[in-house]
Nucleic acid binder design. Structure first.
Length: 614
RNA sequence: GGUCCCGUAGCUCAGCUGGAUAGAGCAGCUGACUUCUAAUCAGCAGGCCUCAGGUUCGAAUCCUGACGGGAUCACCA
């Protein structure tokens, strides 16, 4: 039985025996003792005062005595005000360390439980390269997948590629008009950047066209007839851009025509579309590869956007949906949302109907009991709506759907804006953090003796470690500020700090020769710096469980940081190789080994690799 | 305006299933490398936990209401 359960049970039976009534297990508050007090675990006795009709101090004394007498692992206690501090036998911790050392890299992970979960993340549009916002999405999705794997699930990682629609048509038109047949190969550009260039080109050309048009008679007329009261010419034209695109623009018409031709399956358009998409996807693959992520399956919006008909029919029959003025609607007022169009009056699909259909299809494909959608928090109500409709349709998978909504990534100067060119490109960022790691490492000179290829691999490990940790340590729910300078910091609460602790563990292990590890069992009296490390190790499995339950990788990040910090302190204070006795040396080496394994398992859950040297 | 999220040190963030004197990192200052890698460790300084009520033996944490910031309220995705 788990130590925590043991102590909790002990408290319950103690209170029952002493005062004649058992408290609810919910009233037993057991936490790690604050470091300024003696003891390992603290029980708050205030909740028992009513039951016992005694003063907290007295209850503490009596209960403490009971615990020491009746629980094999409790060696001592002390009472301060209403707090009962229990000390656990050193032998228990030493045994515990021994037992988890045998689990190697399995420690903390649950056995496979046969349950399936699907995690959808990244899900980019195929008209421009990935940026910092995608990086947060990708890291969250990847880490959530790893955490669920560790929690015993079978995980399928998927993305839905938004590969159709007017946006990609803009890039296509621009390439046709201004591209002169150049390709990623001919220019040496990465495919996604190449296509993105034409997306920007379109915006620019369109902008100029629009500006020119503003001096025309048509524009004058539009302003005269459509302006709102008191609206200045400038404000009007700012707001009118979309209408201009749809009604007057030459380029806009070309893009819209292309979309129609695409929908009509025009062979030439489809060929161009496929070509440009393959360029973009090729570019994305390189970015994913540099981030160390991969997917089990890709869904394409071009295949899924017509799905959902069957569910809509079912919805109409079940009266979950209804028909009115040629559209199909649903009423979501009971969950605080407005009525929503599910099928447009021309019979075509909407975002909602697509997501309904996709959910059903994926359930048929894979049969996951849980599906996590990693999507920005601006889409919270969309997913609330989709999930609610599926629940009303009594779809078997509806209860297991979860929207992992994360906040936007801001820069110190404020929000990223493509119009102002402040969008941080994913590839640039990755290159930058690696470069920064390189600078630091070259300066330190620790790895100068390694071959160039190995050095380059280490630069990447450290640089990406810094970037990933920087992003994942923040609670996903929160909007976060991304400071490029701080993200490449290598000191303090950072990925490299944790990697460094790992390198130290490995370093002492390497230097220790022929140590009989079984001597560790003979180590008798734990130093405080040693005990706190073991207690932290003890929390690891529970941390993973909690991170899975909350869909929150930041819990794992701060766990790893805390462990690294405690180990660093221990490393600083205690001699390992020159320990005072053979058992002490064996024990400390064993501790270092388990810390290394745990840090490496934990950081792997964040998608961060560990270096052997740095 | 309705709904949802956020508000903790100069900055970036932990802590939020109620518990002891609210924690880290960065930035600032001070100490520790002839000893397992100092990307480290130790210390100083820095707080009306946005505000006001309420519940409680006890509130940063729960409830209500303000205030500030953000998101969202399309036949777009």
């Amino acid at each position: 039985m788990d130590l925590i359960q043991q102590l909790t049970k002990g408290v319950i039976s103690g209170v029952q025996e002493l005062y004649g009534e058992a408290p609810d297990s919910g009233k037993v508050s057991l936490s790690v003792t604050r470091k300024e007090f003696e003891g390992d675990y603290t029980v708050v006795v205030f909740p028992f005062t009513k039951l016992a009709k005694k003063k907290p101090e007295q209850i503490g004394e009596e209960l403490g005595q009971y615990m020491v007498n009746n629980l094999p692992n409790v060696s001592a206690f002390n009472v301060i005000k209403g707090f009962l501090n229990l000390s656990v036998e050193d032998a228990y911790w030493i045994n515990y360390l021994n037992s988890i050392s045998k689990q190697e890299h399995c420690y903390g992970k649950q056995a496979i439980n046969g349950r399936k979960i699907m995690v959808e993340f990244s899900s980019p549009n195929t008209n421009k390269p990935l940026h910092l916002g995608h990086i947060r999405n990708i890291l969250l999705g990847w880490s959530t997948s790893k955490i669920y794997e560790a929690a015993g699930y079978e995980v399928q990682k998927v993305q839905i590629v938004n590969d159709r629609g007017i946006a990609i048509c803009r890039s296509m038109v621009a390439w046709q008009e201004f591209g002169n047949g150049e390709t990623p190969e001919s220019t040496g550009m990465k495919g996604d950047h190449f296509v993105g260039k034409y997306y920007v080109k379109f915006a620019k050309e369109f902008g100029e066209e629009y500006k020119e048009w503003q001096f025309s008679k048509q524009a004058e007329q539009a302003y005269a007839t459509k302006k709102k009261e008191g609206q200045s010419e400038e404000d009007f034209f700012k707001a009118y851009k979309n209408d201009y695109f749809n009604e007057y623009s030459v380029l806009g018409k070309k893009a819209k025509d292309m979309l129609l031709q695409w929908e009509a399956n025009d062979p030439a358009v489809r060929t161009l579309w496929k070509k440009m998409n393959s360029w973009v996807l090729g570019g994305f693959d390189k970015t994913y590869d540099s981030l160390g992520v991969e997917f089990d399956k890709l869904y394409f919006e071009s295949d899924t956007y017509l799905l959902g008909k069957e569910l809509i029919q079912k919805g109409l029959e079940m009266e979950v949906l209804y028909q009115e003025d040629k559209r199909v609607w649903t009423d979501l007022e009971n969950i605080g949302l407005a009525k929503k169009t599910i099928i447009k009056s021309d019979g075509t699909s909407t975002y909602t109907s697509q997501d309904l259909g996709t959910a059903q299809m994926r359930y048929q494909d894979y049969g996951a009991e849980k599906v996590v959608y990693v999507v920005g928090d601006e889409q919270i109500s969309h997913f609330q709506g989709v999930f609610e409709i599926l629940k009303r349709l009594k779809e078997p998978y509806a209860e297991g759907l979860y929207h992992l909504a994360y906040g936007m990534v801001d820069l110190p100067t404020g929000r990223m804006k493509s119009r102002e060119g402040t969008v941080v490109d994913a590839d640039d960022l990755v290159a930058e953090v690696i470069e920064e790691a390189k600078k630091g490492m070259v300066q330190r000179g620790e790895i100068a003796d390694l071959p160039t290829a190995k050095q380059a691999a280490l630069f990447k490990t450290i640089g990406l470690g810094a970037l990933k940790y920087f992003i994942l340590k923040v609670n996903p729910r929160k909007r976060m500020v991304f400071n490029p300078q701080e993200s490449v910091d290598l000191q303090g609460d950072t990925g490299p700090y944790i990697q460094y602790a790992y390198v130290r563990c490995k370093g002492v292990a390497k230097k220790a020769q022929e140590v009989n590890m079984s001597l560790a069992k003979g180590y008798a009296a734990l130093e405080p710096q040693e005990k706190v490390v073991i207690i932290q190790l003890f929390q690891f499995p529970a941390t993973i469980q909690e991170a899975a339950k909350d869909y929150d990788p930041s819990l794992v990040a701060s766990y790893c940081y805390d462990l690294a910090k405690l180990y660093s302190k221990f490393y600083n204070d205690m001699p390992i190789l020159k320990a005072e006795s053979a058992p002490a040396q064996a024990f400390r080496l064993l501790l270092s080994k388990v810390v290394a394994n745990t840090l490496s398992t934990g950081m792997d859950l964040l998608g961060i690799e560990m270096p052997e040297r740095m």
